[in-house]
């Protein structure tokens, strides 16, 4: 059997002599555990996830801005739509209680309706119902005040949807009067048709809607002397060619500095000046509409206060 070489025997002997000290003896460099630095992929670096998250959020916001810009520059949408009013605002306006309405009565305002000659051809809507025509403009502060009453009154006969939040012009009288725009809204009723026309945006001179030929004739015939101090004056309302209302009985000054919600909330207090003006005017408008609808619905037109105001209207 071959013997290990002399060098190998010396190594084995040295190994036996030192085996008891091996645990504490330093290992040769090549056996010593080393900290190996493995570079993380870039997407796992500390800033990558944060930066990626921030970037993703910012990218989505930028997309929204681009979408908004594309929408406003689209030919099919020349005018940016106004915000739709919240239910809390709309319900407070359309839900004026009979008790509050009766307490307000005329609200101390004079009859805003003027009777047209009985010979005037009755104005009817597309489905044959009596038509209530409204002419106004979004910049107009008097229209702003009138719309509150219009919404209160018409809500007794039907339902508005998508009423838009609007403030009148910031550069006209009674600047920034809070109101609704009828542009973009809709109204449905089994008793009447409501045809609103907002001729200009909040920026005076910027056309929004253009009257039809028939509406032009109506305006030239009844939105003029002796029914109106100015031909084509706004606001103007025609109630089936039975009554017209030129201007507003609601002083926009009452609404100065009030938000939509504040005005809406005020309508629940019959002692409030805002409520008296808006609801008082609305009660007259309601009485005029009752004349058109043959006093329907009875739940509205049969009310003693509305009936009393109706009896005051000329015929």
């Amino acid at each position: 059997m071959p013997q290990p070489s002399k060098r190998r025997r010396q190594e084995l002997a040295a190994s036996r002599n030192t085996s008891s000290k091996r645990a504490s003896a330093p290992l040769p460099d090549r056996y010593r555990p080393r900290r190996v630095t493995v570079s993380r992929p870039w997407w796992r670096s500390p800033g990558a996830l944060i930066g990626g998250t921030a970037g993703a959020v910012i990218a989505v916001v930028v997309i929204f801005i681009v979408l908004a810009d594309l929408g406003s520059s689209s030919a099919s949408a020349p005018i940016s739509p106004l915000p739709i009013a919240s239910d809390s605002v709309v319900s407070a306006v359309t839900g004026v209680t009979t008790q509050v309405s009766d307490t307000v009565g005329s609200g101390g305002i004079s009859n805003p309706l003027q009777a047209l000659p009985a010979t005037a051809a009755k104005l009817t809507g597309a489905d044959g119902n009596p038509e209530v025509f409204y002419l106004g403009a979004e910049f107009c502060p008097f229209c702003a005040a009138e719309r509150w009453s219009v919404v209160v009154a018409l809500s007794r006969f039907g339902t508005f949807t998508d009423l838009r939040l609007l403030t009148s012009s910031s550069t006209d009288n009674y600047p920034n009067t809070h109101t609704f725009s009828f542009y973009g809204s809709s109204y449905s009723s089994q008793y009447l048709d409501f045809v609103p026309l907002e001729t200009a945006t909040r920026t005076q001179g910027q056309t929004l809607q253009t009257p039809t030929d028939a509406q032009d004739v109506l305006i030239e015939t009844y939105d003029t002397s002796p029914y109106s101090s100015k031909t084509g004056g706004i606001p103007f309302m025609d109630f089936g060619n039975v009554y017209v209302a030129s201007g507003t009985a609601v002083n926009p000054q009452y609404l100065a500095g009030l938000s939509w919600q504040q005005i809406a909330n005020d309508l629940s207090d019959p002692t409030n000046t805002v409520a008296q003006a808006i609801i008082g005017n609305a009660n007259y408008l309601t009485a005029g509409i009752c004349k058109l609808t043959g006093n329907l619905p009875a739940s509205v037109c049969g009310d003693t206060v509305i009936a009393a105001l109706e009896s005051q209207l000329g015929s």
């Binding site: 106004l82 915000p83 739709i84 009013a85 919240s86 239910d87 809390s88 605002v89 939040l165 403030t167 910031s170 920034n176 938000s259 939509w260 919600q261």
Partner: peptide
């Protein structure tokens, strides 16, 4: 209020509830 920054219009809009 008025113009692009108009928190009152936003907080009174249908998106506020």
């Amino acid at each position: 209020t008025g113009g692009f920054v108009n928190c009152e219009a936003v907080t009174s809009s249908s998106y506020s509830v």
